[in-house]
């Protein structure tokens, strides 16, 4: 996963979220959000599996979304 400017997980404090994690938060919550979850905390928050979110990331990449 590519690195972007430093964003930490709002829930667990995990340092430096990846571009994919930040992009996923924007896609699933809203583009203008200021707080981000790491993928595991995001999966827990949304009550889905981490694998389901990773699959979504792949779908967004296939669609050409450059948030990822």
């Amino acid at each position: 996963m590519k690195q972007i400017k430093r964003v930490d997980c709002f829930a667990c404090g995990k340092k430096q979220l990846t571009k994919d994690e930040v992009g996923l938060n924007k896609k699933m919550i809203g583009r203008e959000i200021k707080q981000f979850y790491c993928i595991d905390c995001f999966a827990e928050y949304l009550v889905v599996s981490t694998e389901a979110l990773l699959a979504k990331i792949e779908e967004f990449k296939e669609q050409g979304c450059n948030l990822f």
């Binding site: 896609k27 699933m28 919550i29 809203g30 949304l46 889905v48 389901a52 979504k56």
Partner: peptide, 8 residues
């Protein structure tokens, strides 16, 4: 966002 959350 709403659409993608529903998709999940």
């Amino acid at each position: 966002a709403l659409m993608h959350l529903l998709d999940l």
